[in-house]
Simulated scan of single mutants.
Amino acid sequence: MDLKQIHELIKIINKSNIGEISIEDKDGKVTIKQKEEQVVTVAAPAHHQVITTAPAPQPAANPAPAAPAAPAAPAKTDNLITIKSPMIGTFYRRSSPDKPVLADVGTEITPGKVVCIIEAMKLFNEIESEISGTIVKVLVDDASPVEYDQPLFLVEPA
């Protein structure tokens, strides 16, 4: 079972009321459980890895009226585009420790430019930009774990 299939299973579990699902094939066994915190366990013949994801949002029975929040600082975030993580893994800003940062605040990016690396299951995946613009904020610290669809960068489109 590959990483894309596991991501699809996680999406299905998050959208359903299924508490647990286990799938086993020649490559290993995948068990996905949804409780207070959703835990995904991936067991393959060579290794065992546990990935914790954010709990699925639960609809509120009686939502309380939202209190108006005081703006911290006026910022032009209306037109910013978010680059999100396409997978669960570890976020790296450099292709190796001795290389320069791939993308930083002020970096001009174009479609196809590598903006970061995400390590997932011992594979280093180059994450490429799909847009043109300038990075205005890096939202994740280097060598931090990231979740599927987690915002990584804010980009002002060109």
Rank of each mutant, 00 (worst) to 15 (best):
M1Y: 04
D2Q: 06
K4I: 14
K4Y: 09
L9I: 14
I13E: 00
I13K: 00
S16R: 04
S16N: 05
I21H: 01
I23H: 04
E24M: 08
D25N: 15
K29M: 13
K29L: 15
T31A: 06
T41M: 11
T41K: 08
H48M: 10
Q49L: 15
I51G: 01
T52N: 12
T53K: 04
P55Y: 03
A56K: 10
P59Q: 00
N62D: 07
A67D: 04
A69Y: 05
A69G: 10
P74R: 06
I81K: 08
K84R: 11
M87G: 12
G89W: 01
Y92K: 04
P97C: 05
P97M: 03
K99Q: 12
V101C: 08
L102N: 05
D104C: 09
D104W: 04
V105T: 11
T110M: 07
P111L: 04
K113N: 13
V114S: 08
C116N: 02
I117D: 05
A120H: 05
F124P: 14
N125R: 06
S129T: 05
I131L: 11
G133M: 10
V136Y: 01
D141K: 11
D141P: 07
V146T: 09
E147S: 13
D149A: 15
A158I: 12
A158L: 12
